[in-house]
Design a protein around this nucleic acid. Structure first.
Lengths: 257, 257
DNA sequence: CGGGAAGTTGAAGAGCGTCAAAAGTAGTGG
DNA sequence: CCACTACTTTTGACGCTCTTCAACTTCCCG
């Protein structure tokens, strides 16, 4: 049943075992050829500052379904995603799950104010991350105020996105949730230089349900419904074309037919 | 019908009219006698730095139901709450509302990365706020890195709280939502030096519903249910005693009977 | 191909929303 | 102080959306 790869970080006990998987193909100056830097907060750094960053980074690869860290685990590391897709989520004791975000190249995760992580993180596809020791990264923040300012800006953007998601979870219908989700995913893809419309949907129906507060069945039924209404087309289960952005937008905002 | 006081800031049109209501009782050095400073981010400042802050602050009073600013209005100002209670919320075009947070003394609001506010803010009770011009406050952040660091910390805490709220909205039952809400409100009151258990509930049932993604009727019914189960007692409609914190906690976490 | 996971579809039921009305509460003015 | 009004809260009846459970189909990878 449990075919998931073992976690990168095992914080189950009191020991803080690190089983880092260094990529063989990782260059000596890891940040040099980085493709996502212009979009990531690293863009706030000069090239000298960047080499300070490069000194403390460990490029790491994750297999699909491989956990990166667990809620309540000691928050000793901090990450940038440079390729692939991840999900972060919280669990209730009985197994109910709320996915609070999907992360793609240029996103970061693991920034905790507390000593433990507030959520779990797991790879969806094959994923590459840049790993930093928390302490070293915080030292860097002290030395490079521009980096800290950028981080504050991103944190604020995420807060705004979280509030938008609360509106979705608290007040939108299943149809409106799906429309909002696809629209947001498509816009983020466009903004971050990934292919948009058709938009890549790396997560499965169960993940989408746990992100939108719906069951997998309702997600599936709603996709079918929108497909029959010729509002969207599934080019494959993981690639969706939005046929009329205006209509989808009006559905997402609650004005839809 | 519309008995709400006029907004403090009118950003309806293109004009940016400021109708600030200076409190007559506001002292010349407004931050000097501030009661909430130890809890607010101002605690990161030395007394010299504090006087720089005091130079640019305008203490302002709000009547119950008085709007402070509106979603999409130009984000020119930034606020600390020093007394009272406020709510921040987002609306859908058809009037559905999601309250994304309740704010009390020592909380701040209005920090936007964009040129416009991402949510509306309105006083629940008579409320006092410290008002800053955004530009001046940002200059202060550049001069006092400790203040910026503190702000980043608070933003991170709020992000964690937002994720907890997503779990609530996406995956918890009405009973679990009410239990989580009362527990969180009680804990925050204790943490911020307000009276806890009985906890002060300044918002009405409709506000609670719009915060928890429920109808007012369901909020009322659930209160009645928990009251009959002798889990909580209403000392008045705005003062609730939690009779068994352990039971309430287990309900909030989804283990409740 | 073949087996297992992921996705879809159907039927039935639960939980919460909606509508409606009663009860409680607060503010106002005689 | 009490009556009048308006709003908030509570309670009840009913219906709808979404969940649950189950069976079936499709997809994917060895």
């Amino acid at each position: 049943m449990d075919r998931a790869p073992r976690p990168l970080i095992d914080n189950g006990g009191s020991s803080t075992l690190l089983r880092a998987i260094s990529r063989p193909e990782a260059p000596c100056v890891p940040c040099g050829p980085c493709q996502v830097r212009p979009l990531a907060i690293c863009s706030a750094l000069t090239s000298e500052e960047l080499s300070s960053l490069a000194n403390i980074v460990s490029p790491t690869g994750l297999a699909p379904r491989q956990p990166l860290f667990d809620e309540r685990g000691a928050a000793t590391l901090f990450f940038f995603v440079t390729a692939g897709a991840m999900k972060i989520y919280k669990l209730l004791p009985d197994g109910r799950r709320q996915i609070t975000g999907f992360l793609f190249a240029s996103d970061f995760l693991g920034l905790a104010q507390t000593s433990t992580y507030a959520y779990s993180a797991e790879a969806i596809t094959r994923t590459d991350v840049c790993r930093f020791r928390r302490k070293e990264f915080e030292d860097l923040l002290d030395r490079f105020p521009r980096l800290e300012k950028k981080l504050l800006g991103v944190a604020n953007d995420e807060l705004a996105a979280a509030q938008e998601q609360m509106l979705l979870l608290g007040r939108k219908s299943a149809r409106e949730r799906i429309a909002s989700f696809l629209l947001a995913l498509n816009e983020k893809a466009a903004r971050c230089g990934r292919s948009s419309n058709p938009v890549w949907i790396p997560m499965n129906r169960s993940d989408i349900g746990d992100y939108l507060g719906l069951s997998t069945e309702t997600v599936s039924r709603t996709f079918t419904e929108l497909k029959l209404a010729r509002i969207l087309a599934l080019e494959s289960n993981s690639k969706i074309r939005l046929l009329d952005l205006d209509v989808i937008e009006s559905i997402a905002d609650g004005n839809g037919a």
